[in-house]
Simulated scan of single mutants.
Amino acid sequence: MDPANSSPANSNPAYNDPRYQAGWHKLAEVDGEQGQRVIDSLQGIAPDMARYIIEFGFGDIYSRPGLDLRSREIATVAALTALGHAQPQLRVHIHGALNVGVTPTEVIETIMQMALYAGFPAALNALFSCREVFAERGVSPA
């Protein structure tokens, strides 16, 4: 994902804003190809939502200095697991967690921890999403 060469960045001069650029680089660092797919999927229906995700989510929040990316992705996997109904977003962030150095075991343990607070159905749904991501990446859960 290169902000200088992506279709959103080339189609609107507002995307040359430093906040957007910082967010784009952070999105690429964390979510890579998965993040690009999310942004691309929004272009035909809600390009402003794509811009908000980049500027606010990744430019403002993910770029803050208080937590490293591993910690942020563990927290995100936990939160999406607890929601229990955000499997597409959870899959993106399981990829992201693995991209920033969270181990497969840590992803599984994070999800299992959520069974205590979000319930077994939410944790089971998340584990099934986790299995899909691991299979897609050829990752062993142990």
Rank of each mutant, 00 (worst) to 15 (best):
D17W: 08
P18R: 05
Q21M: 11
H25W: 07
V30G: 02
D31R: 10
D31W: 02
E33I: 12
G35L: 01
V38A: 09
L42P: 04
G44T: 08
A50G: 15
A50Y: 05
Y52W: 13
I54G: 00
E55Q: 13
G57V: 03
D60K: 06
D60C: 09
D60I: 04
I61G: 05
Y62T: 00
G66I: 10
D68I: 06
L69N: 11
S71A: 15
S71N: 14
E73I: 00
E73V: 03
I74G: 01
T76V: 04
V77C: 00
A79L: 14
A79H: 01
L80Y: 00
L80W: 00
A82Q: 01
A82M: 12
L83P: 03
A86I: 02
A86D: 01
A86T: 08
Q87P: 12
Q87G: 13
V92I: 15
H93P: 03
H93W: 06
H95V: 11
A97H: 00
L98Y: 06
V100N: 09
G101C: 08
T105G: 13
V107K: 02
I108A: 11
E109I: 08
E109F: 08
T110H: 08
M114S: 03
M114L: 08
A115K: 02
A115V: 09
A118H: 04
A122S: 14
A123Y: 01
L127E: 04
R131H: 14
E132L: 12
V133W: 00
E136T: 12
